[in-house]
Every structure is written in C-alpha cells, then in structure tokens.
C-alpha cells in the first residue's frame, strides 16, 4: 500500500515536470499545447481503428521491454536490443520466404517466429559472449552489433532478397496473405499477437518474481561476487539473461514482419528497440508499469502522426514528450535515492 502510494506520487511528479516542459516548448513555437495534446489523444484513442494501430505498436514495444527486464535483472545493459529486433525480423522473413508455397502456412508461420526468436537470441549471445570471453562492455558490443544488423538488413533488401526487377527502400516482395499473422474479421490488430504479448507478460512476471531462476538472476545482478559463494556461476546467468532478452526482441521483430508490414523493410525496427530502453527506465526497471508505459508511448507514436496534417507540427513531438518523461522520471528517482542516502 505504502509502495503503491509512492509510485502514484512519482507518476504525478513526473507528469508535473514533463507536462509543463513540453507545453513550454509548444508555446515557444507558437502552437497551442491544449490543441496538440488533444490531437495526440484523439489520434490514438479517437477510434477503434486508431486504437488498434496503437496496439500494433504496443505489442513489439512490450515484448522488447520485457526482454530488457531480464538483462537488467542480471545487471546487463542490453543496448543491442535494437539489432536483436532487426535480426529477429530477418529470421522470420527468411523462413516465410522459404514457406511461400508450403502446404501448412500456420506451421510455416510458427517456424518463422521461432526462427526470429532464435536469431535474436544468437545476436544477443554474441554480445554476451564478447563481454564474458573478450571483456568487451555489453553497451559497446551491443551498439556495434546494432550497426552490423542494420548493414545486414540493407544488404538483404538490396541484394539477395530484392524484389524482382527493382530494389528499393520499400522492402522485399510482400508475403502472401496466408502467411500473415492470423487476423479476425474487422480487426486491424491480430488478437493472436496480442495474446502472445499478454502471455509474455504473465510468464515474465512469474519467472522474475516467483521462480528460483528469477531470484538467482537478481542475486547475480546485485552482487556477482557474493553469488559465487552460493554455488552460482554469474557467467551462466548473464548469458541466459541476454539470450532470453534477445529472443523476446527477436520475437518482436518477427511480429513486425508477419503481423504489421508483411515484408522486410529497412526500417523494420521502427526504433522500438531503443524506445523500449526508455520504457524500462521510465518503469524504474519494474515489470508492472511496463505494459502501461508501453501503451502510453505507443499512443504518443501513433497520435503524433496527426500533428503534421492538423497543426503543421512535426511528429517528432512524440519523441520530445517521451524523452521529457524519461528525464523527469530519472530526476524523480534520482532525487529519491539522494534523499534516502541523506536520511540513511
């Protein structure tokens, strides 16, 4: 109860800092903050079709954020999540390409998602392995691998996987409808993809907060020296954590390919990897706020598409608000820590 109250106060404080800051910026460029926030809201929650677009962003964002949580628990900064997402998309697209005329499209789709998760986790394993065997900090390894992943996807789209005749930024040849993520009549978001994300939330909540593995992982993150005395190998846990992190990011990439774009495009990640880092930071590395924050961020992303048309404002306003929220959150959390340190 005490905790809940504190989280509520934190949230209000964050909004109390980020809100006026963004309004001030809008006022400076001569736009009405009320109008802008109104358009952001109506653009994301104004209709079922708009809201389903928000959910389509929420799914990969949540998957990536959940994955990051495993890495953070073990003390790792998996910046490579962006590249793992991209490689996941490549893995899924690769299998879908092979399965174009297969007898059982559903099986192909499942294999494709599996391949996405696998490739994402391999990409993550590379960063983890570089850290453990090569002493390369995971932030540098991850950042480097992100660029390599970008190179790979561009090479595929403009090289081996290019559309017959034309290679362009618009991506590969779209996959046939049978290989799309199953939809329901009248839905713009796949309920199965939604179920996948919800399942990931439930499983992650159990693993991190109630399983022995989760406790061990947290112990490794808190004090890698002491866990040796408890017979745990920190390296094994670090690798496992980053592999799970990569698998979830890869799955997010797979969803992007099979449920949203139905082909591989250069911007397949939509920057959701990096955005999920912000989500997790804003959630203060806790699980429960993640779905809500991811929804908030997804709404901002989708709602801001309205801004150029309605108000001649650039849609990057979404990024400004997201950034302002995260900075305010870090400030609020930081001040709380300082105060606690001064009291203790």
């Amino acid at each position: 109860m005490q905790n809940l109250k504190q989280h509520l106060i934190d949230t209000l404080l964050i909004l109390a800092i980020a809100g006026p800051f963004t309004s001030l910026l809008l006022a400076l460029v001569g736009a009405s903050p009320a109008d802008a926030f109104g358009h952001l809201f109506s653009g994301s929650f104004g209709s079922w079709s708009k809201f389903s677009r928000v959910l389509n962003v929420w799914i990969p964002l949540t998957l990536c954020s959940l994955g990051l949580l495993y890495a953070f628990r073990s003390g790792l900064w998996n910046i490579g999540v962006e590249g793992q997402l991209v490689l996941g998309a490549v893995g899924t697209a690769g299998v879908l390409r092979l399965g174009v005329d297969a007898a059982s499209p559903l099986l192909v789709l499942m294999l494709a998602l599996l391949a996405g998760a696998l490739l994402g986790s391999l990409w993550a394993l590379l960063a983890g392995w570089l850290k453990i065997k090569g002493g390369v900090h995971e932030i540098f390894a991850g950042l480097g691998l992100n660029f390599v992943a970008m190179g790979i996807i561009l090479w595929l789209i403009f090289g081996p996987w290019k559309r017959p005749g034309i290679a362009s930024m618009s991506g590969t040849e779209p996959f046939p409808r049978e290989l799309w993520f199953p939809m329901l009549e009248g839905w713009r978001v796949s309920p199965f993809a939604l179920a996948l994300a919800l399942a990931a939330i439930v499983i992650t909540a159990w693993v991190l907060n109630h399983s022995r593995f989760g406790l061990n992982l947290k112990a490794v993150g808190h004090n890698p020296r002491a866990v040796l005395l408890y017979g745990l190998s920190p390296q094994t846990y670090l690798l496992t954590a980053i592999i799970i992190s990569g698998a979830l990011a890869g799955l997010a990439g797979g969803v992007q390919v099979s449920a949203i774009y139905h082909r591989l495009i250069p911007a397949i990640s939509s920057g959701y990897g990096y955005l999920s880092l912000l989500v997790v930071m804003l959630a203060n590395f806790r699980l429960l706020p993640i779905p809500l924050i991811a929804l908030f961020f997804a709404a901002l992303n989708v709602g801001s598409i309205q801004l150029p048309m309605m108000m001649q404002l650039d849609s990057s306003l979404a990024g400004v608000i997201q950034g302002a929220c995260v900075l305010s959150a870090l400030l609020v959390f930081g001040l709380r820590r300082l105060k606690k340190g001064a009291d203790g």
Partner: peptide, 9 residues
C-alpha cells in the same frame, strides 16, 4: 556485505 551477502535481499 560486499562479498558474502547480497544487499537488497
């Protein structure tokens, strides 16, 4: 506390 126990646990 540095080597034997895990702060936060």
């Amino acid at each position: 506390l540095e080597e034997g126990l895990i702060a936060g646990f």
